[in-house]
Amino acid sequence: MKLVVKDLQFGYNSRTILNGISLELRPKEMLGVIGPNGSGKSTLIQCIDGLLRPKTGSILLDGKDLKSISRRELARRVGYVPQTTSRSFFPSTVIDTVLMGRRPHLGWRSSNQDVKNVIQVLRLMGIEDLAMRDINELSGGQQQKVLIARALAQDPAVLLLDEPTSNLDIKHQLEVVEIIREKVMEKSISAIMAVHDLNLAAKYTDRIIMMKDGKVFVSGTPESVMTPENIRTVYGVVAEVIKNNGNSPHIVPVRSLRRPSRLLTNDLPLEPARA
C-alpha cells in the first residue's frame, strides 16, 4: 500500500497545527516522525487515520482519497496505536481487547480462528500469559503492548504508531520496535512511527521526517537528518552525532540552548568536545 500526503493543513480555529505537510510512504517502509513537543507529530498521525479532518490538502491511499473511503474500509487498511494508553472504561480482558482488532474483518460472531490469530499476536508481543487479565490491572507498559497487539491483529497495510514506546522500559522499547520492524519486512506492510527517542528513530527507521512548527523541517535517511545542526535548530539542543562505519547515527545530547544558570556553566561545555 502506498500512502501519499499532499500539502496537509490542519488547525483548531485560528491556531495552525500543520502547515503544508507532504510526505510519501512506500510499501515495506518504516518512516520515523520526530520533532519537539507540539510540532504536530500526533496531529499528523491522527489526520492520516481520519480521526482529524484536515482543512486543506489530501491524503491518498493507493491513489484513493481518504475522504472517499468508509471508516470500516479504512480500518481494514490502517491500524493506529494511540499515544495515551486508553483505559477501557469497564473491565475487559486482554484477549477480548485484542480481539476488537479483528472487528473490521468480522461479522457478529468471532470464530475460533480469530481467537487463535489473537493468541498468536499475544505470543509475538510476549504477553500471552496476560491473556485473561483485566487490562485495567496492567502496568502502563503492558497496556501499551496490548494496544500494539490489537493494531497488529487488525492486520493493516499501514501501521500508525504514536509514541509506541513512551511507557516502556529499555528492553521492551527495543523489543516492540524490533517486532514492528520485523512485521514491516515480513508482511510488506509499512509503518509511520512518531517517536521522541532520536536513537530509536535513527536505528530502526528507513527514513525520517523532522518536524518543526507544523512543517517538515527536513526529511531523508537517518544519516542525512540527524546532524548536530538540524537537532540544534529544531530542538534547541546541542548534541553530538557519532557515526561509526555505516551503522545508524548515534545521538548524544550534550546540553540545551537555554541560558544556563551560573551553577551549571562550569560543568557543561557550550559546544561538543571534538574527539
Partner: peptide, 17 residues
C-alpha cells in the same frame, strides 16, 4: 461489537472502523 469497542475510547473506536 461496536459497543464493546466504544468502551476503549472514541478515537480508538473510530480507528477500528
Amino acid at each position: 461489537w461496536d459497543l464493546n469497542i466504544l468502551t476503549t475510547g472514541d478515537d480508538s473506536a473510530r480507528s477500528l472502523g
